[in-house]
């Protein structure tokens, strides 16, 4: 049952009390949301369909799914779909992430490890 039932498909499973947590969304979360909306617009293909993003989320593995926050799943899944479609390359992605981190350090900000 734990094999044939996929980890995102959780309706009815035992779980603890609902913690009424909330947080102020961070700028990168708003940005992620906007990226997904823009890529989903018909005028851009669409380059991303919501079911493609969901599929990518469902393929990341149960441990990662539970470890990541909601918008972390979104950006990771969307990035994977863009890589699959060749919108940008793995090489370009790696360099772009390092460029963002370098900019953060140059501005005196901190960069989390891992």
């Amino acid at each position: 049952m734990t094999t044939e039932r996929r980890y995102h498909d959780m309706g009815g499973l035992p779980a603890g009390p609902v913690e009424r947590t909330e947080h102020e969304f961070e700028p990168w979360e708003h940005k992620t949301d906007a990226i997904v909306r823009l890529l989903s617009e018909p005028g851009r293909g669409p380059l991303l369909r919501v079911d493609e993003m969901r599929r990518a989320i469902e393929e990341m593995g149960g441990n990662i799914y539970d470890e990541l926050t909601y918008y972390e799943r979104w950006i990771a899944a969307t990035t994977n779909v863009m890589l699959e479609k060749g919108v940008f390359s793995v090489d370009e992605l790696g360099k772009a992430i390092e460029a963002v981190r370098a900019k953060q350090r140059a501005a005196g900000g901190e960069v989390a490890e891992g």
């Binding site: 369909r49 919501v50 079911d51 493609e52 969901r54 599929r55 699959e84 479609k85």
Partner: peptide, 10 residues
Amino acid sequence: NPEELAYGRA
């Protein structure tokens, strides 16, 4: 069909 859209087929 979401089962097709998920794999880029529309």
